[in-house]
Design a protein around this nucleic acid. Structure first.
Lengths: 144, 144
DNA sequence: GATATCGTAACCGATATTGTTACGGAAGGG
DNA sequence: CCCTTCCGTAACAATATCGGTTACGATATC
């Protein structure tokens, strides 16, 4: 399945924006992401609605972070992109009243809930500042 | 996104097959899953290749479990359906040499690996026999 | 007013699962 | 033998999501 690359792209570009410090246009950001400005506006628009970035139109406009990198977690970005569970439990709804189907779904839901808890903990514990620091390490020293 | 319901469907039908004990045709299984026989053959075919069920053609043919319910785990079924990771890390590949992209991807990969570990542990710890037992509970007493 | 930007709608393309039709092969009953 | 009951498989449409692209309007600065 084609994976949804929006979270990774947003982390990538937010860190760049934080390191550059100023305002960036959709055009420049699109080059960072190897895509085009409309995709950038679409995706950054979701972050704007959650107060992570702000935009200004007109000449000299563009996108800017509203907080410093150490005040944005991966989870913040994820929540801005999509509401609800990150990992959808792959349940079936063929015979909703069948006890066997209900028991199967229940097992899957609990397992995925545990995995999601793990995922959220990691996302919440990682700030963009840490990613920026890792990137500097990778750029110079050994990559692990 | 539309979730992949194959795992849930296979758990559902395998438990039914185990409880019924005999051989079932694709037609009857399709009725259990509220679908049609071709879908059943397609999906059960993957389980056959991994030795979980066996099939026979011709009159009196059909599908049968090769092991008892307590000897098949959810993980076995998952592995039969798809190889590789269950949770794909949603990484980006826009600029593979960019240290910032690499650092972002690395964070996501580690978080998803932790979540997948959790998921696999749950899948491996649950047998179809346990699901069958849960289903009997649900059918009679309170649902939890 | 000209120019640089964002905002947004509309559409196509790629991908994965599901549903469906169609046809062929195999096993067993009469 | 032929017929019925099965599975095996190919081929195609439908659906849903994300990504890419074009087009046009709104807005802020020069």
């Amino acid at each position: 399945m084609k994976t949804d690359g929006r979270l990774a792209r947003m982390l990538h570009v937010l860190v760049h924006m934080g390191l550059l410090g100023g305002r960036e246009t959709s055009e420049r950001i699109a080059q960072m992401l190897n895509t085009n400005p409309v995709v950038v506006r679409r995706t950054l628009g979701a972050l704007r609605e959650h107060g992570i970035v702000e935009s200004e139109g007109g000449r000299g406009g563009g996108w800017k972070l509203t907080r410093s990198l150490d005040q944005v977690t991966v989870l913040d970005v994820q929540r801005a992109l999509t509401e609800g569970p990150i990992l959808a439990a792959p349940i079936s709804r063929d015979h909703p009243t069948c006890p066997v189907e209900r028991a199967s779904n229940s097992v899957l839901e609990k397992a995925h809930a545990a995995a999601e808890t793990q995922l959220i903990a990691k996302y919440a514990a990682t700030t963009l500042a840490q990613i920026a620091k890792d990137a500097k390490h990778k750029a110079s020293g050994t990559s692990r």
